[in-house]
Amino acid sequence: MIAHIFADRCIGCEACVAACPTHVLDPGADGVPVIARLNQCQTCFMCELYCEADAIYVASDQRHPEWIDPDTLAASGELGSLRRGYRWTRENSQPGSLDQFWRLGPLLREGAEIAARRYRDRHPGQPDV
C-alpha cells in the first residue's frame, strides 16, 4: 500500500491524484496530495510510475499498511526505482526500453516446459501433460 508522499520532493502537479485508479488520493491544501482512502489502495504502483518527482513510495504489502521511515528511505536510493525500471517519463519512454519485451512469451513457455519436464521425470510412464 502507498506508504508515504515526500512533501520536500512533491511538485504539486497532482498527476498521482488523477492517475490513481482507485481514488486513494485527494488534493492537499498545501499542494501535497493526501492519502485519504488507504483501504482502497491495491498496491499497483501506478502512482509511483506517474510521479515525475519520485516523491511517492508504495510499500509492497497489499494486505495491510506498513510504516516506513521516510529519512531512511530517502537515503536508500529506492525512490523512483520503479520508474527507472520502466525507463519512463510521463509522455514517452526512453529509446530501447522495450527491446527485450518480445522475449516475454518465449521465456514464459520455457518456464512452463521446465515444469512439465520435471514432472514427467518424476512420474515416468504417465501420459504427457
Partner: peptide
C-alpha cells in the same frame, strides 16, 4: 531456482513491477 537463466537476468527489462514487491520486502 529452476527458472530460465535468461529470465533471471532480464526480468527487470520485461516486467519491472514484478521485482518491486520482492526488493521492497
Amino acid at each position: 531456482a529452476d527458472a530460465p537463466q535468461l529470465l533471471k537476468t532480464i526480468l527487470r527489462d520485461i516486467q519491472p513491477a514484478s521485482l518491486t514487491p520482492f526488493e521492497r520486502r
